[in-house]
Amino acid sequence: MRISQFKNDQARDRYRTAYERTLAELWPGQRTALDVPTTFGTTRVYRTGPPSGEPIVLLPGSGGNALMWHRYVDELARHRPVIAVDAIGEPGASVQTTPIRDGRDGAAWLDELLAALEVPAAHVVGCSYGGWLALSHQIHHPGRTASLTLVDPAGFADLGLRFYAWLIAGGLASVAPRRVRPRLARLVGNSAILESELMGLMRAAMGFRRELPVPPVFPDEELRRLHVPALFLLGARSAIHDSREVADRLGRLAPSARVEIVPDAGHALPTDRPDLVTDRILQATGR
């Protein structure tokens, strides 16, 4: 298997320039950057907030990095330490050296990262692909997760035509003139395209080859092993699954989990309803 990496040095340098500019624009406040070695490569994280307490660990969706949480960090850091992660294998400041073949490898990477950061118990928040990683970690490495908040997580349906059509439509809409993007965002159901700075960063990532596994559907026996406090926030109009079916399945297999289907929201739930997502994260962490 191959590893995620830039196509060449020029692509890497272009992206890093765009990344540093976007970081300075979107996250101008105080932060500490750490590069943490793991078996799978060096992982960049940003720490902010109080020096002690169980931290909130933020995992991005596919193709994203720590900067996708820029509008959340200040509010969350008023209550708890925050660790925002450039997930290994995604475009960002992390550098992958070993393939991640499946959910077990992804879980092992996250467990190594938390151990290296000396985090015995974390409130893990994962969006989409990051939600799949967070849940995989809790299933395969129980004991280090204090709570889970999973924002329209992957791993509950095969990614079909509907998802790829949503993805392509969003990509095309993101390069349209800025004045028409709000209308296009409503049309394609993807408010993330209104994050102009992050869309620019994603365009800079065109020179990045992402080599990570497609999330398989969690089998029943794994979901039955979910025993930590877990909140599933599902967009009613999600492009990756039928949210009602997911809620019903979790009700049967993981009765301790809480599920909230958010009306008038889709897979881009963090940009559709940022205030609601922030509030639910803080509720789940016992603020």
Rank of each mutant, 00 (worst) to 15 (best):
R183F: 15
G103H: 04
P51M: 04
L276D: 02
G63W: 05
P81N: 08
M206R: 12
R209W: 10
H79F: 14
R71D: 13
P120H: 07
E118Y: 09
G53V: 08
H140I: 03
G126N: 10
P55T: 10
V277M: 12
E211H: 13
G171W: 14
I193A: 03
L59S: 06
R225W: 07
M206A: 15
S243R: 01
P177D: 07
T39R: 11
G160P: 13
L276H: 04
D9H: 10
A108G: 08
V262S: 03
R237Y: 07
G103V: 11
V228C: 14
F156R: 03
R44E: 08
A146E: 09
V175S: 07
S128G: 13
E112I: 05
S94P: 07
I193C: 05
I240F: 08
I139Q: 03
T38H: 02
A204D: 05
P91I: 09
I56P: 00
A173K: 05
W69V: 08
R162A: 15
A236K: 15
P120C: 09
R144H: 13
R14Q: 12
K7A: 11
H79L: 09
R273T: 09
H70V: 07
T97C: 12
R280M: 10
K7D: 07
R183Q: 10
T97A: 07
L26Q: 00
D13P: 05
T97M: 02
A205D: 03
A154P: 01
V73T: 07
Q30L: 12
L234M: 09
P153E: 14
E20I: 10
D152Y: 14
A77V: 06
A66L: 09
E221M: 06
V180P: 00
A265F: 04
H70T: 11
R252M: 15
Y164C: 07
G61R: 02
F40M: 00
G92Y: 15
P51K: 02
V151P: 00
R210K: 11
P274K: 13
G170I: 06
R203K: 13
I168T: 06
S136F: 03
R179G: 12
R249F: 13
C127P: 01
